[in-house]
């Protein structure tokens, strides 16, 4: 709980700072100088430690086993996902996601096999930040959290609850707990190796590229893949 309180305090502080900081570029990112510093730090840690370990993991552990590990953690997540479905009034989805947990935990042997997807029960993506967004809470200032990466004030608060509800977090016994945390982190990073190589190639400025992509992604997730259309070409005129 102490950790949760500290994170809350930091987020409140960030929110207050956001209120008085002068905006340079994107109005959604009033804390850009601070965020850039954290982003550089994260990038350095990633390049020095996390990415090399994830690459090693991908080259040493066979694909089938990696999928099993990824599925195991994904199944644990589905519990909290189904709770968030219900909190957003999406009872049908909540039922589906809970059924996923039941199927995969039993027939899928503790979630190692994702049987439910083969049966047509598609996995959904929900968390508490999205639940807040669904009920109309704006995302607030963009934040780059140390190690955890891109977020916003709203999603940061969501993350406090997500962490409390995290089943891995609930497991007693520090060594087991930490091993599971590390494995999940490496497994998630390994799944993103291809995506991050594309970003390296695509971005002129990696910071702004990741920020824009992240904000669009969250907006899309809050609206379950169907966000209201934005005007795409301001001041556009037909050209020949």
């Amino acid at each position: 709980m102490a950790r949760a309180k500290r994170l809350c305090a930091a987020l409140l502080l960030a929110g207050t700072l956001a209120g008085c900081a002068t905006s340079g570029g994107n109005p959604a990112d009033p804390l850009e100088p601070l965020n850039r510093a954290v982003f550089r730090f994260n990038d350095a840690v990633d390049g020095a430690v996390i990415k090399p370990v994830a690459k090693g993991y991908r080259s040493v552990v066979p694909g089938i086993l990696r999928t099993g590990i990824s599925n195991f953690f994904s199944n644990l997540e589905d519990v909290w996902i189904s709770v968030n479905d219900v909190l957003q009034g999406k009872f049908q989805r909540g039922f589906e996601d809970f059924t996923r947990v039941l199927f995969n935990s039993t027939f899928g042997i503790a979630g190692v096999f994702d049987f439910a997807s083969d049966l047509g029960l598609q996995k959904h993506n929900e968390d508490f930040g999205q639940t807040l967004g669904w009920w109309g809470v704006g995302s607030g200032a963009y934040l780059v959290l140390p190690i955890l990466g891109p977020s916003t004030v709203r999603d940061g608060f969501g993350l406090v609850l997500d962490t409390q509800a995290d089943l891995v977090f609930r497991i007693d016994g520090v060594p087991v707990h930490n091993t599971l945390y590390a494995t999940r982190g490496i497994s998630n990073r390994a799944n993103l190796l291809d995506a991050s190589s594309v970003i390296e190639q695509a971005a002129l400025d990696k910071y702004t590229f990741v920020r824009e992509a992240w904000l669009q992604r969250r907006r899309n997730l809050v609206h379950d893949g169907d966000p209201p259309r934005e005007r795409e070409e301001p001041d556009d005129e037909p050209t020949k």
């Binding site: 002129l204 702004t208 590229f209 824009e212 992604r217 899309n220």
Partner: peptide, 19 residues
């Protein structure tokens, strides 16, 4: 891709370069 527009993602980068 996953709701992220390949094109508008560049908008802020382009705008700040031009600024």
């Amino acid at each position: 891709v996953g709701g992220v527009s390949l094109v508008t993602t560049y908008r802020d980068t382009f705008a700040s370069e031009i600024r």
